[in-house]
């Protein structure tokens, strides 16, 4: 099957810069997949995404959408992709209702269908109560939810969301991931997420690319990425401050607060640690490595 996106050797060097912001990046995103782009600030995530939506022209390399080179048909992206930019001021001073309506109508829905979709999406994202308010007067969180509604308007087969949970409280963040999972499952929408919130993103992402200084340091499913690191078990230890437990040789803990350690161990080391656990240890938790662990490992 033709992938939704196919990116080959993408390079982008900004004018006046010696080092490329994006350096020989290649990846594919399957149709119906939820793909996450993770990385620190300045890692090149938004630069990659802006090339996916043709807002930046690559210095070299190729981006194909459903098998068609976007450089030969830049209008293709606008017909297939719903894009949510990072800037939450992009909607200017339209009301929430107008923002969704115009996006839906300009994306080809009839006026009647655009009105219906406007009402559905405002309700879905919980911003129907501020439908008549200028987007400039919404709170940061409301504006972010409105942007999600706008990106979804017009039912594009691909959604590209740049930092969709910025400015949102935990309840709303949870709602975002839930709606995106549902959209992906029910409509088969391909979703590309840019985020540095690995903990939250784990709830939705099926495959992930971790960027560091414009290059992928890892790309694959979380399970594949787990296999690439030594410790596949996450062990959290709590102990009285100043009285840490003994650790297997060669294991370096990561501080996770006062009197708390976080360890990534293979099964044998984790077993050995548990077997001779110091009685002073007040708490121990074992789980699989999280996306955040993978992110911290590969982005470091």
């Amino acid at each position: 099957m033709t992938p939704a996106y196919s990116v080959e050797d993408l390079v982008l060097t900004y004018p006046g810069q010696d080092r490329p912001a994006v350096d020989a990046v290649s990846f594919t995103i399957a149709e119906g997949e939820v793909f996450g782009l993770l990385g620190d600030n300045g890692a090149g995530k938004s630069t990659v995404v802006r090339q996916l939506v043709t807002l930046l022209r690559p210095t070299s390399g190729r981006v194909a959408l459903f098998g068609v080179d976007v450089a030969t048909d830049p209008g293709l992206v606008s017909r297939k992709v719903g894009y949510m930019p990072q800037s939450s001021a992009a909607l200017n001073r339209l009301t929430a209702a107008e923002s969704v309506y115009f996006a839906a109508h300009l994306r080809g829905l009839s006026r009647r269908d655009a009105r219906r979709e406007r009402d559905e999406l405002l309700g879905l994202w919980g911003v129907d109560e501020v439908a008549g308010r200028s987007s400039a007067r919404l709170s940061g969180g409301q504006r972010r939810l409105l942007q999600l509604a706008v990106a979804m308007a017009g039912r594009r087969p691909v959604l590209i969301l740049d930092e969709p949970t910025n400015d949102l409280d935990p309840v709303r963040r949870k709602h975002v991931w839930s709606v995106l999972r549902q959209r992906n499952a029910e409509l088969g929408t391909t979703i590309v997420l840019v985020t540095h919130d690995a903990v939250e993103a784990e709830k939705a992402i099926q495959r992930v690319g971790i960027l560091r200084r414009g290059r992928f340091t890892a790309i694959g499913t979380p399970a594949e990425l787990r296999r690439g690191i030594e410790g596949s078990l996450r062990v959290e230890l709590a102990f009285p401050p100043g009285d840490p437990p003994a650790l297997p040789a060669g294991v370096t803990p990561r501080e996770a607060g006062e009197g708390r350690w976080l360890l990534l161990l293979d099964h044998a080391d984790a077993g050995a640690l548990v077997a001779r656990l110091d009685p002073a240890t007040t708490d121990i938790r074992l789980s699989s490595t999280t996306l955040e662990d993978l992110y911290l490992h590969y982005a470091a």
């Binding site: 807002l55 992009a90 909607l91």
Partner: peptide, 15 residues
């Protein structure tokens, strides 16, 4: 529109 990202947003619509 350029400073606020509105131009970018409109550019991603079929306009």
């Amino acid at each position: 529109m350029k400073a606020m990202g509105t131009l970018d947003f409109l550019a991603t619509l079929p306009v």
